[in-house]
Amino acid sequence: MKAKELQELISFISDSGLEEVNIETEEFKIKVKRSAEVKTVVESAPQPVPIANAAPVVAATPAPAAATPAAEPAAAPSAAPAAEDESKYVTIKSPMIGTFYRSPNPESPTFVNVGDKVSAGKTVCIIEAMKLFNEIESEVSGTIVKVLVDDTSPVEYDQPLFLVDPS
């Protein structure tokens, strides 16, 4: 694992709110622990060699700056009128037969709602079949204009799930 990857991993951990994380690879072993004030502890590895590399990186890791790329400024929030021409919209279809879920689990909020901006690669729903859970990603960036299927309904192969306005 390279120093940069390690740094990213640690910043991921700080963001995740986990209390303690131990990472072990062939080269090193490291323990990251959160306490009252967040601090990072490095333990020596079984072999002394690569830890010298890893240590400064860890020490240098600041509290993660929330460097979330600001979502592109939304244009005027256009609540698309129903009568509008739908041909310009992109349809997200089900790649398989299964059950459509709008949230990761029953207690969680939905992945997307009408009016939400999505970027390509953003998870919009889950299709479950035979206990296999598939996260479906939007292939385009745009705005969700319509959710075409009710939560927890069965869906067919190629069935339209969402309309996305790519403009």
Binding site: M1, L9, F12, S16, L18, E19, E20, V21, N22, I23, E24, T25, E26, P104, E135
Partner: peptide, 18 residues
């Protein structure tokens, strides 16, 4: 070959997915 061990977490699947 890379192990992330957590004394406690809500769901290893969720952490892995993240």
């Amino acid at each position: 070959k890379q192990v992330i061990s957590l004394p406690t977490c809500h769901s290893t699947n969720d952490i892995a997915a993240a």
